[in-house]
Nucleic acid binder design. Sequence first.
DNA 1: ACCTAGAATGGATTCATTCCATAAAACACT
DNA 2: AGTGTTTTATGGAATGAATCCATTCTAGGT
Lengths: 144, 144
Amino acid sequence: MTDTTHAHRIDEPSALLRAAGLRVTAPRVAVLAALREHRHADADTLIATTRARLGSVSTQAVYDVLKALVDAGLVRRIEPAGSPARYEPHTHDNHHHLVCRTCGRIEDVDCAAGRRPCLDVVDDFGFTIDEAEVVYWGQCPDCA
Amino acid sequence: MTDTTHAHRIDEPSALLRAAGLRVTAPRVAVLAALREHRHADADTLIATTRARLGSVSTQAVYDVLKALVDAGLVRRIEPAGSPARYEPHTHDNHHHLVCRTCGRIEDVDCAAGRRPCLDVVDDFGFTIDEAEVVYWGQCPDCA
DNA sequence: ACCTAGAATGGATTCATTCCATAAAACACT
DNA sequence: AGTGTTTTATGGAATGAATCCATTCTAGGT
């Protein structure tokens, strides 16, 4: 914990919450902090981390916080097949994910050449497409 | 139901099962038939359809059948975020899916120019990638 | 026709998540 | 600083999807 007394840095949890029009509460600040520590954490991990930090929080509080953060666009929720939902700070950079089939490890990947993949669909069935989500499945070095 | 007495067509449920080294049972045949009728059906739909066809089947039987079919490569399981698992006959054509955020409708899409998307990842973290799964999110014409 | 491995049954159980009513606390306004 | 209104947290129960288990049944080889 760096000593930043009276900090007003724009990337601080409380500042982020205020900027998003959300009330600043201990659970919210703690969940945001936990999200920074654990990349692609699931709810369980975040509950445990938040609980360790605050002494106690209800399970539902963490779920509520996550929902509020996702709705506000501060957090991104991903749901890889076969694993519970994972959460990451929302970076708005359209990155994708690399998932290990064996251990579930997840890493961020930028799309080749920075272009969004396959934006042109041959037949879109009249759909209005707003996002192309890519998941790369494989084995991580530890599991291979 | 077309009248194909003593049929031996290679794409028939029982032939498919035998070719995959699986025993031919009523629930398996019925689930395969149900999968043809309902594109991207979830377990509930398949259970209901199978039950209607056979008179009765246990819920677990259908789940077991689906697992066996998926393991045998006859069926593909997809799990779009926010909805229960969906199943489709496995076509081995590397197609992707278009999902309506509102009603959950799913359509198949071929990747632009038939190429697999973003095969070259900038940094693969040492992973051995075997599949790139793409989900296009949007609104279907009915929901737009 | 018989035997045995594999499949189906019914019942209970897990896991992740959501719903509900009540109690607490954050921010706006004196 | 005190008060009030509205949002948030709590604790407990409930849901939906899927899986586990022991028992019974059956497909298909001998």
